[in-house]
Simulated scan of single mutants.
Amino acid sequence: MILEVAVLNVIPGQEDEFLKAFSKAQDIISKMVGYHSHQLKRCIEHASQFILLVEWEKLTDHTIGFRESKEYQEWKGLLHHFYDPFPTVEHYTNIEKADESLISHI
């Protein structure tokens, strides 16, 4: 399982419109191959900042399957004009067994 993490900085004053558009966009992503779940969270300290967490089966389900699809063009049209700057998107994987070298740095 892969976790996509996107920090979304919405242009101040456009948060309500962004949330309306996201309610439509989430239907698009939820139908993609390899999609498992998503959460959109709003920052308490900065009301125009959101974080999107999407679980994918494989990295390529997001980077190729979704981003190279016609559905992505619809997603992009609904959401991308709300961002400034454009989102940082990174991918994470689970650590199955605690690694002693990681724990020693905590």
Rank of each mutant, 00 (worst) to 15 (best):
M1K: 06
L3K: 14
A6L: 08
V7Q: 02
V10S: 00
V10R: 00
G13C: 02
E15G: 02
A21W: 04
A21N: 09
F22I: 01
S23C: 04
S23A: 14
A25K: 03
A25F: 06
D27T: 04
I28V: 13
V33F: 03
V33I: 11
H38S: 15
H38G: 04
L40G: 08
K41E: 02
C43M: 09
E45I: 06
H46C: 07
A47R: 08
S48R: 08
S48E: 01
Q49P: 00
Q49R: 11
Q49W: 00
F50Y: 13
F50M: 01
I51Y: 10
I51P: 04
L53N: 10
L53G: 11
E55H: 14
E55W: 12
W56N: 03
E57H: 11
K58S: 12
K58T: 12
L59F: 11
T60V: 12
D61Q: 08
H62A: 03
I64W: 02
I64D: 10
G65V: 06
G65K: 05
G65Y: 02
R67M: 09
R67P: 02
E68C: 05
E68I: 01
Q73P: 03
Q73K: 15
E74T: 15
E74L: 15
W75D: 10
D84R: 04
D84G: 06
P85I: 07
F86R: 10
Y92G: 06
Y92F: 15
N94W: 07
N94M: 12
K97N: 08
L102I: 04
I103N: 03
I106A: 02
I106F: 06
I106K: 04
